[in-house]
Every structure is written in C-alpha cells, then in structure tokens.
Amino acid sequence: MSPDLLIALVMLTNFTLVATSRINKAIQVAVAQGVILGLMPLAMGLGRHVHILAMAAAAIAVKGWFIPFLLRRALRHVKIHREVDPFIGYTASLLLCAAGTGLSLVLAHNLPLKPGATPAFLVPAALATLFTGFLLLVSRRKALTQVVGYLVLENGIYLFALLLVEDMPVLVETGILLDLFVGVFVMGIVINHIRTAFDSTDTRHLAELKD
C-alpha cells in the first residue's frame, strides 16, 4: 500500500460524505476514513516506532469502533435516518467540496512547509479533509451529521499531525490522544443533552439558548 493511494481514498471519502443524505451511510464512510487514516502511519513507514503503532491502534479503535458505536446507538434511539432539508443542498455541497479541495492544493503548494520525506499529497489532503469537516458542520442540521462533520474535521487535523510526528513525537501523540478524548467527551455530552433536552437531534433548537 502506498500512502498516496490511501490519501486518494481519503479524498474520495470526502466527496462521498458531502454527497450522501443517509446518516447511516455517512457514519459508515466516516468510519472507513478513520480506519484508513489509522493505517496511514504504517503506509508512511513509521511502523518501527512502537508508540506510533499504539497510537494508530488507539485511533482506529476509537474512530472505527467506539464513536460509531455511540453514534449508531443514538441513531437507533432518535429514529432519524435522513438528513432532509440541509442548509446547503447536496449538489452545492459537492461543488463547494471540490472548490475546497482545489483551494487546498493551491494553498498547500504555497505554504512555507519544511521540505521532507512526507508524501506529496498529505498536506492538501489534510486541508481538504478539514474543509470537508467544516462544510458538513456548517451545512447540516442534524446533530448526528454534525458529529460526523466533527469526526472528519478531526481526521484532517490528524493527517496534519502526521507531518510533525517524526520531529516532535511526544507533543503530537499527546495532542492526538487529547483530541480523541475531547472528541468522545464532547460528542457524548452533545448528543446526550440534545436528546434529553429537546427530544430530537435538530441543532436548530440550540438557537433557543441564545440570550
């Protein structure tokens, strides 16, 4: 497996995510993306570091199993399967996602990064994934889809972190583990609270909290 192949797969999943309206499918795709990213350190030839392996395993376990498990449980509970009536339509989302990916390529090309042995498309893919995550967060109504968006955003950050993993392993690992922890924590709280407080998972209700 070459890293470039995995990166291409990641980009592909990005497009799939913004195009789908079925929440269940979105979760599946996000899981797939998480697992692919978990494999990335191996593909980059970092497999000789035990702690990096452990970190990758933790990432796969949390993103591939634990968070989807939480999400599916929430999905079963709220009985919502489709994202109807998003703020931004599917076609428009796809176009925006494509524009974001293009912008990422331009930006990554011009960013003052340290030249190194990193795969050529790592930075653009990271940025693109980041934008996709934001796009999902901004354009969708349902809390569950937004959680997926957050997951994707988080995946982008993870990709970025891989850039630095050789230079400052401790910092990156701590950061990633902290990120995972916060992810699980925040999402658990958000989903739980929306459900109990409003008996639905529509984030529009959160606007009522405005003072």
Binding site: F87, L130, F131, F134, L137, V138, S139, R140, Q146, T203, R204, L206, A207, E208, L209, K210
Partner: peptide
C-alpha cells in the same frame, strides 16, 4: 453577529481559518 445558530458560529471559525 451572535445569531444563536451553531452552523453560523462554525462558519466564523472556517472563515477565520
């Protein structure tokens, strides 16, 4: 600027980024 809509806040973040 404080619309109360979560997506709008996230949009601010995205635009800043």
């Amino acid at each position: 600027a404080q619309g109360g809509q979560l997506p709008v806040y996230l949009l601010y973040v995205l635009l800043t980024l």
